[in-house]
């Protein structure tokens, strides 16, 4: 299985990773090699096999509806790249 340049570019858009033109041939090659490795899966007979999402056959525990968190804005925003008036800043989004 090889990945086309178009597919690679589409996936990069979805993943929000900018690719420079000179990176693309090597990435195409690497990803195609990885997908070839992964293609071994198609040989496996998985008829009537349930997918396994978690190794333990456990069920979710639910939390009581009680407030346990307090305001830590100052600590959290001390490590933020850009804030103002308590808001996180991003380049203006046009709706």
């Amino acid at each position: 299985m090889t990945i086309s340049r178009a597919d690679l570019e589409k996936v990069a858009v979805l993943a929000r990773i900018r690719l420079d033109d000179e990176q693309i041939p090597a990435l195409e090659n690497d990803l195609s090699n990885i997908l070839s490795l992964v293609d071994q899966l198609s040989a496996a007979n998985t008829d009537n096999v349930e997918p396994l999402a978690h190794p333990l056959d456990a069920v979710q525990r639910l939390r009581a509806d009680e407030v346990t968190e307090s305001n830590q804005r100052e600590a959290f925003q001390a490590i933020a790249p850009a804030t103002e008036s308590g808001l996180y800043l991003v380049p203006r989004v046009i709706e």
Partner: peptide, 20 residues
């Protein structure tokens, strides 16, 4: 929520504020 108030970065570029 995104707030499109009069927010600007240090270069004067218009910014959107995020309240989570």
């Amino acid at each position: 929520k995104s707030l499109h108030e009069s927010l600007f970065d240090e270069r004067g570029q218009g910014m959107t504020g995020i309240d989570l």
